[in-house]
Each structure stands twice: as structure tokens, then as C-alpha cells.
Nucleic acid binder design. Structure first.
Lengths: 231, 231
DNA sequence: TGCCGTGATCTGTGATCACAGTTAGACTTG
DNA sequence: CAAGTCTAACTGTGATCACAGATCACGGCA
């Protein structure tokens, strides 16, 4: 089994088309570029992605399993419309689980985690305090910060669950954020992020949980106050 | 739009073959009839289910998304082997989330919930104290009790998350339970269930959380002590 | 006796076709 | 002009075929 040492390359990623289609669609959802209620045609999506409908079918069936998409009784696929009650439920669950992850992070974070959390927090602060904030970029940086925190809990299963929650919340939250740049300027999220960062550095689990909870419910209250939800 | 009132039938379930295949496979996993490491051939499964491979593909791709199945780099599909570390992570997450659900149940349960929880608890107690306990049935009754509790939290999103966790834990936990009927006889689970039931009836959130945690970690400790896990 | 090449047979992935059901628009009819 | 009907173009679902890669057993060579 001795090979020439020159062959030290990684096992070259053999990503299937289905996975790439899933990643593409998931990104659209999580960043809010697909609005609730928007319909999605398998064939149209396949055309856009430049593949046949088979990979798209696989991607969509995964997203439907995650309840990030839904098939109507008419068999049409769309981004689910969320009632205010459902959104409140989702928010409560996010606060419980993401708060738990943040608390765990205070106990299991290592130096690398602190570094990436710090970098992510500063990047988002810089962007949102910029005179001409780039909203899509701010949404992306927000995601980066949150997941830097959750990754610090060192629980792959927990991170995966939270990712699925973001898939559901993304269309509602980030679509709205795109439409309302002023909310970013108020800096509520920025303050929460700083609180979380400090709590994790200090090892204060309760404070980290509260910081995340305040961030999530701040955004949720804003959405609910605008009253744009169904049902 | 006025119709003869005789047409009061439900919208006749148009379940797709893919959904039925998913339900079938999920049940096999959650009840531990598929062992970790066991391979699953799409064509063979399609033969057994009497359909073409298309519905099976959809079901499997969902389960892979849930990480209840995995596709190896060789493209073979199998039930994931779980390392002891992964199993500990899963157990910790289950305790946090299922414990949270039980605590929520103490606040949101209504009379129907109390009834179904009581019935489920008694049914499982009767079965496990029987002289000739039917293990597959005990596994099923255990599931029924737990989900009766979680449903009482009245949070569909939480229940769905827990269902996904059981999909991962089922092959490890229930396969083992089938092989070790004596664990059931020790009655640890039964005592925990009674504690949970009483706590929910009394509205004691902390006690309900602890009861669930004791039940989960009791089973997990037993699995870990047998040392049959990979890696 | 031990090892390596080779081919048959399996795997999942992707494309294409067929079909039933839905939808929307134009056309006809009262 | 309005209401009903019919057709044409979509929808997702399922089956079938084609293909590249993996696996494993058999047979020949060293």
C-alpha cells in the first residue's frame, strides 16, 4: 500500500448535482431571496440551474421534508406561508434551542471559536455602521456570526437542527430585512451580538442565552408589528 | 358554492407513493428494525415495497437529509454507524430538547393531553410488567407515551425536531432494547414515565424535565456501558 | 501458494418519456 | 355583454433506460 508521496491530494469532492441544487435553493431560502408564497416550478428551476429536473426533484424533496418548502394539495410547490401563530411558535423554539446552543458555547468554546466569533462580530458591525450598508451582505454576515457562536458549542447535531430552523425562518425574516434597511441602523442586533460575544468570552452561559434571545425576539417583534403575516 | 351536505368526507388522502415509502422506512428505523451499518439497496427496497425505485429514491433522499441514513463515498446507502462520541452528543441534545418540550407541556397541556398521556403510561406499564412482554409492542408504546408528552407542548415545530432525533436514535436504542429484554424488567423507564406524568398533571416543569432526562440518560448509559458502539 | 488483472454484477445518479390532474385563457353560446 | 365550456399548456409523480463507478469472485501468472 506504499504510494509515491506526491499523491497527497484530498479525495476530490464528488458532489452530486442534487446536492449542489439543494445548496443553491437552501441559500436562496435562508437569505430571503425567495418570498413566502412564491411558487417554484421544478422544470423552471432545472432550466435555470442548467440540469434536468432529477437533481431538482431531489433537492426539493429534501426541502419539503425540512418544511422549508411545501407541496400544495394541487401539487404546486411553494415557499410556505406562515401564520402569525406559526411564526411565534418558530420564534419560541429558536429562542430555546439557539439560546441553549449559545449557553453551551460558553462552556465548550476554544480559542479558534473566540477568534472566529470576534471576527464575525466585527465584520457585521462594520457593515451595518457603514454609510452605505450592503443589505444582502449584512444578512450573510449576520448568519456567519450566529453560526460561529453555535459551532462553538461543538455539537454537530445541534448546529444541524438550527440550520433547519433558519431554513424556515429565512424567507420571513430576511425578506423583511431587505425591505427595511432602517431596522439594521437601529443597532439592536449589533448590541445583542456584542453581548453574546462578551458572554462567551467570559464564560457566562446565562448572559449568552439572553443575548441570543434578545436578538431573535427583537427581530421577531419587528416582523410581527408590521403585521404582514398570513392567517 | 352550496353543496349537498352529504358530501362531508375528508379530502381523501392523496398520499404519494414516495410518502408511503418514507413512512415505511422511517418506521423501520425508529423502531430499530434496521441496524446501524446495515446497507439498503434502492432496487431491493423497491422490490419489497412493490414499486419502482423512484418513490424509494425520494424517501431515501429525505432520510439522508435527516441524517437518518447516509450515502457512503462509494454511493452505498446504509444506516449510519454512530461513534460513542456522536451518541453522547445526540443524547445531550435529546435531553435538552425533549426535556424542554416536557417542561413546556406542563404549561400548555389541556385535558385531552392529560388523558392520552395517562392512557399511554398505563398501557406501557401493563405491557412491561406482563409475564411475557412483547418487546416490539413495548417499543411502540414507549414511543406513544413520549410523543403524547411532547404533543402536549402544542408546538408542531418542536415535535417535528424530536421526531427527527428519534429517527437517528432509534436504530441504536431500540435495536439494543430488542436484544436485551431484561432492561425493560428493571422498570427504570416505567418509574421515569410515572414521574413525568405526575409532573405534567401537577404543572411542575422542572420535575417533568428531570423525569425525561433520567429516562433518556438511563437508556443511553445502558447502551454505552455495553460498549457496542463504533469508533 | 500468493497476488494481480479482469469481467460480471451490483450500486446510486441523471435524463427522458408517459401520464393524470390542474389552471388559465380564448371561444362559444345564451 | 356575461356566463359557461373546452382546449392547450402547464404541474408533480412515476417508470424506464443509460451510465459511470464500485465490488467481488474467478482464473491465470509469478
Amino acid at each position: 500500500m506504499n504510494l509515491p508521496a506526491a499523491l497527497n491530494l484530498e479525495p476530490l469532492d464528488r458532489q452530486t448535482l442534487g446536492e449542489r441544487a439543494y445548496a443553491k435553493l437552501a441559500d436562496l431560502l435562508i437569505s430571503g431571496r425567495l418570498a413566502p408564497g412564491e411558487k417554484l416550478s421544478l422544470r423552471a428551476a432545472a432550466d435555470v440551474l442548467g440540469v434536468s429536473i432529477m437533481p431538482v426533484r431531489e433537492a426539493v424533496s429534501r426541502l419539503v421534508a425540512d418544511k422549508a418548502l411545501e407541496v400544495m394539495p394541487n401539487r404546486a410547490v411553494r415557499v410556505p406561508l406562515m401564520s402569525a401563530a406559526q411564526f411565534r411558535d418558530l420564534t419560541k423554539v429558536r429562542i430555546a434551542i439557539e439560546g441553549h446552543a449559545a449557553a453551551q458555547a460558553t462552556q465548550h468554546r476554544d480559542n479558534n471559536d473566540l477568534l472566529s466569533i470576534g471576527r464575525a462580530e466585527e465584520a457585521m458591525r462594520a457593515e451595518s455602521q457603514s454609510l452605505t450598508p450592503d443589505l444582502p451582505r449584512a444578512v450573510e454576515l449576520n448568519k456567519t456570526f450566529h453560526f460561529a457562536v453555535y459551532e462553538a458549542a461543538h455539537s454537530p447535531i445541534l448546529v444541524e437542527i438550527i440550520r433547519a430552523l433558519w431554513l424556515k425562518a429565512g424567507p420571513v425574516i430576511n425578506l423583511d430585512l431587505r425591505a427595511n434597511p432602517d431596522r439594521l441602523a437601529k443597532g439592536h442586533a449589533i448590541r445583542c451580538h456584542a453581548e453574546v460575544r462578551n458572554a462567551i468570552a467570559a464564560g457566562d452561559g446565562a448572559a449568552a442565552r439572553e443575548g441570543i434571545a434578545a436578538d431573535i425576539s427583537g427581530a421577531a417583534d419587528f416582523i410581527l408589528s408590521r403585521g404582514g403575516l398570513a392567517g
